[in-house]
């Protein structure tokens, strides 16, 4: 039964990712350009909110997260390097949490 459930979910997940590619010729992207652009920003923003808020287990986590995001921002504004910004944020989060523990 477990294998059947896994296979069904796997096929359905794959189809939700694949169908838009197969049906792209039937979608007028020029007409939907502004919609999709705004939609993609909103989705990324939602992903940020859910991942950030979801990580807050205790009140003390919020300032740790905010300070780490500040470092991410400053690093990104200085070097414009995505990987470097994220890794500096992870390190900041790690060291602050370590210090608070």
């Amino acid at each position: 039964m477990e294998v059947f459930i896994i296979l069904t979910v796997a096929i359905a997940t794959y189809l939700t990712r694949l169908l838009p590619f197969l049906l792209k010729d039937r979608i007028d992207f020029e007409r939907w350009g502004n919609f999709l652009s705004s939609s993609s920003t909103a989705i990324i923003s939602s992903l940020f909110v859910t991942s950030f808020v979801g990580a807050q287990r205790e009140p003390k986590d919020l300032p740790v997260g905010i300070v780490s995001l500040l470092i991410v921002t400053l690093t990104f504004l200085r070097w414009r390097n995505l990987g470097l910004s994220i890794i500096s944020g992870i390190l900041m989060y790690f060291f602050i949490s370590l210090a608070l523990n």
Partner: peptide
């Protein structure tokens, strides 16, 4: 939790 912080950091950038 520090490693999982990679997600909000990624979306924020």
């Amino acid at each position: 939790r520090s490693l999982v912080f990679a997600f909000p950091a990624l979306f924020f950038v």
